[in-house]
Amino acid sequence: MPHLIPETLARLTDEAPDPDEAAHLSGCAECRAELEGLRNQCAALRELPAPPLPPDGWESLEFSLRQEGLVRSTRRRYPALARIAAALVIFLMGALAGSWWTGAGDVDRPLAGAHEEQAPVVDGTDARALWEYAGSLDPADGDPLARLAILETILITTGAALAEAPADPVINGYHLSAREARDAVLLRLAERDDSAEWF
């Protein structure tokens, strides 16, 4: 008996089979396997992550909308008294912070957060060391998974550093290079596994 055609199997991922189709499926392991593969494919498609939005999406849209006069600001105007009170609070907080900083406060107590402020997540030297290590793994003959792992580490590290210093050209350079290298490794792995059974 001929197999069910692929479009029929594709329909059966959503709908119940009619009696003939059900009879065929119960006796045909190949069609059952195909149906299972299609169900897994649908599940994998549902799990695909949404591509990340462009970072300046809203800003550039808002710019265009303002140019066309399609939006107007809805910022609330605070009463004069509230604005004066807010300015006073900010002034007092600044004065307190200043006196503490210049030693008027408790001099023996370490400044909270000072260590974190002085130690960035990563600097250019760290990024370069990681990058050189990744480069030492031969992209042609080495284990691509090992290279992928180190490139991931670089991306996480430089990504964290960029959150602290988004305009740093050195870290940006390493981050972009690592991303390109990582993409190349991923593509190579995907091509290498073209013959693998996925579903």
């Binding site: 692929p6 479009e7 594709a10 329909r11 299609l38 494919q41 649908c42 073209d194 059974e197 579903f199």
Partner: peptide, 23 residues
């Protein structure tokens, strides 16, 4: 619906390893 079923079948064929015989 009909476009979806065709699309799913095409995807399945593209994702199936080359050694498979079906379609």
């Amino acid at each position: 619906k009909s476009q979806l079923f065709k699309a799913r079948a095409k995807m399945r064929a593209l994702l199936r390893p080359p050694r498979a015989e079906r379609n």
